[in-house]
Amino acid sequence: MALPVTTKIVLALAVSGIAVYMISAGGSEGVLEYIYVDKFVDEMPRYAGRIVKVHGTVVPGTVQQRIGAAGDYTFEVEKDGRRLPVHYTNMVPDTFAEGGEVVLTGELKDGRFESEEMAAKCPSKYEEQASADPTKPPGKR
């Protein structure tokens, strides 16, 4: 004896109902546009007032930290010569370094990218490692 047709119909309706509900109610929190710095700088007005992710390289020599505040940094990120000033207010990840690639989440305010969330390229075993320069002194104190 197989399942009665009515049971099958009820099941099909229930499954599709749940699916439709989940998709409509779920929304798209956590889905963000991802833009490289050069494009962001070229089309800046387009992104004003929207939370986006920006990917670029931290320009060496631009990182400044306000000592005494809980993670308050300014620096610039760059791609193909286009630079974007960033104000970052949070802890930086271990892998954050001048010249390293970062992905910042935030929005444009007064020509500056305000961000509280950063992903710095994570070291992976499957990566050609950046060679360490032995002449550099150990990190800041």
């Binding site: 929190e29 889905v31 546009e33 991802y34 992710k53």
Partner: peptide
């Protein structure tokens, strides 16, 4: 391009 984060 979009990225999809943990909340999604």
């Amino acid at each position: 391009r979009v990225v999809i984060g943990p909340p999604f």
